[in-house]
Deep mutational scan, measured.
Amino acid sequence: EDYYQILGVPRNASQKEIKKAYYQLAKKYHPDTNKDDPKAKEKFSQLAEAYEVLSDEVKRKQYDA
């Protein structure tokens, strides 16, 4: 799945936009606030993985290549 789609940001998003999108979605899908939703944990880990790659310039360049 596309990391940009997961975070809901365009491919040319700035680091600030990526961070903002991640924090909004992380708050929304955090397992502690969605105890009754088994998919929230999965969504949250996808968000974390996408953010880890896109927030790191080197990893992001490799991902975009």
Rank of each mutant, 00 (worst) to 15 (best):
I18E: 00
Y3I: 03
R11W: 07
N12H: 09
A40M: 10
K19M: 15
E17L: 08
G8R: 07
A65F: 05
K27E: 15
D36H: 13
E42W: 11
V53E: 02
L25D: 03
Y3V: 02
A13H: 01
P10T: 10
D37T: 05
Q24C: 10
L47R: 02
A26G: 05
F44S: 05
P38G: 08
N12T: 13
Y3A: 03
A65T: 09
A50Y: 02
K43S: 06
S55W: 04
R11G: 05
P38S: 10
S45Y: 12
A50S: 03
K39C: 10
Q5I: 09
L25F: 04
A48R: 09
D56T: 02
S14C: 07
T33W: 10
L47N: 02
G8T: 03
Q46E: 09
K28E: 12
E17N: 06
D64Y: 01
T33H: 12
Y3C: 03
I18T: 01
D64H: 02
A40W: 10
E49P: 03
K59H: 04
K39E: 12
P38E: 11
V9A: 02
E42H: 11
D2S: 11
E17T: 12
P31T: 07
D64N: 03
I6Y: 04
S55P: 00
L47S: 03
V58D: 14
P31N: 13
V53Q: 03
D37P: 05
Y22I: 02
Q5E: 12
E52A: 14
Y22F: 14
K19D: 15
L47I: 15
A26S: 11
K20R: 14
Q62D: 14
A40K: 06
D36R: 09
P10I: 03
V58I: 13
V58K: 09
Y29I: 09
K59N: 04
K39V: 15
G8Y: 03
P31R: 06
K35D: 11
R60I: 01
Y22Q: 01
K19I: 14
K16Y: 14
I6M: 11
K35R: 11
I18D: 00
K61W: 04
Y51H: 04
R11A: 06
I6W: 07
L7D: 00
L47D: 00
Y23Q: 15
L25T: 04
A48H: 15
P38K: 07
L54K: 00
K43F: 13
K35P: 14
E42S: 09
Y51E: 01
S55M: 06
K19T: 15
